[in-house]
């Protein structure tokens, strides 16, 4: 984003719509960036108005990640695409045990998109980034013709600092390790689904979208490198994440259905729609694999944090050359937890 003194008339933030000129590099674009994004993100790096943000970094290892957000609808119970774009990318950094430092945001906006909604989204991002203490320090805006995008798509990237001595990785789970889950599952997917056209149903379920880096910091402080790995079970849900872990580490996972927290409203909605909560997306939960010795202390530390209040020990890592994730059902039988086949719900994040 460039610094600018565009002059001319102010944007009509109440009734105006995004036009192609808002992405063409001229005065209109400067207006859009200034009145919407600078105002919402408000930080010194962005205000410097350069093509990039420059900042000091401490010694050690860094983590970097990027993610695209295309959720539909853009506003859903408990959140919106903007909040999701901040939390989701922060969480990807946090899963390395890292402290997120700064992030970037890139917008692809469809011609005709209401300026008022773009402002709401930007303000929501600003609020989320301030609450998380992670500034949006650089960005980009493009406008595409009507019909070439669906409202707005957002890409965010983030860099973070990994504490010395920590090297979490998906291939580090070992037989005997314990699997912890930070809270109830399926809330985000159900909240988004409840507002989908031709699927809409009434529910009080709110998306769980949240930045997890402070919970992670508390976990790292308690258990340090006894934590083998962490993952946030977003698209594909807990089922996909556990399968990724099993395959990366060449181990099996055994979980107990009774130990997995699912809110009654989420369970009811899944029942209605024929979904398995294990396949439904989360945006504010994490799975941690930890050594058996450190599991109790880590679980206690998670429960002491508001975002981990419902944390539970859901299973353990076992030796298994087939890398199966198996579950003892509450009914008393056994079954595999597989990756989701096909699309359960497109554009969930």
């Amino acid at each position: 984003m460039n610094k600018h003194e565009p002059g001319g008339r102010k944007l009509d933030l109440r009734n105006g719509r995004v036009e192609l000129s808002h992405g063409s590099g001229g005065r209109a674009m400067a207006r859009l960036i200034g009145e919407i994004f600078y105002a919402a993100f408000d930080n010194e790096w962005l205000a410097a108005g350069n093509d990039q943000a420059a900042f000091d970094i401490p010694a050690g290892r860094m983590a970097m990640t990027t993610d695209g957000y295309v959720v539909s609808p853009l506003f859903f119970p408990g959140g919106d695409i903007g909040k999701l774009a901040v939390h989701g990318t922060i969480n990807d950094i946090a899963m390395a045990g890292a402290r997120p430092l700064h992030m970037s945001a890139s917008f692809i906006v469809e011609e005709g998109f209401p300026l008022a909604e773009l402002k709401l989204i930007a303000e929501s991002m600003g609020e989320a980034s301030r609450a998380a203490g992670v500034a949006i320090v650089t960005g980009d805006t493009k406008v595409v013709e009507r019909g070439k995008a669906d409202g707005v798509f957002i890409s965010t990237s983030c860099v973070g600092i990994i504490p010395a001595g920590l090297a979490l990785s998906g291939d580090k789970a070992r037989p005997g390790d314990v699997v912890l889950l930070s809270g109830s599952i399926g809330d985000h997917g159900v909240a988004v689904m409840s507002k989908r056209e031709n699927l809409s149903f009434d529910t009080e379920v709110l998306s769980d979208t949240a930045a997890l880096h402070e919970l992670v910091a508390a976990m790292v402080e308690t258990a340090g490198d006894a934590i083998r790995l962490m993952r946030d079970p977003t698209r594909g849900g807990v089922a996909a994440t556990l399968n990724e872990i099993a395959h990366q580490s060449r181990v099996g996972v055994r979980i107990d259905e009774k130990a997995i927290p699912v809110a009654p409203q989420v369970a009811a909605a899944c029942e209605l729609l024929g979904l398995d909560p294990l396949h439904v997306a989360n945006e504010g939960k994490l799975l941690a694999v930890v050594t058996c010795e450190a599991a109790d202390a880590l679980l206690a530390a998670m429960r002491a944090h508001p975002l981990g209040a419902q944390a539970a020990r859901i299973g353990e890592i076992v030796a298994d050359e087939h890398c199966f994730v198996q579950m003892t059902t509450a009914f008393g039988g056994g079954r595999i937890i597989d990756w989701l086949s096909g699309e359960q719900l497109p554009r969930i994040c």
């Binding site: 003892t328 059902t329 009914f331 008393g332 039988g333 056994g334 079954r335």
Partner: peptide, 9 residues
């Protein structure tokens, strides 16, 4: 039968 692991019972 498959989802609840009834064969195990």
């Amino acid at each position: 039968i498959s989802r609840y692991g009834i064969e195990d019972l």
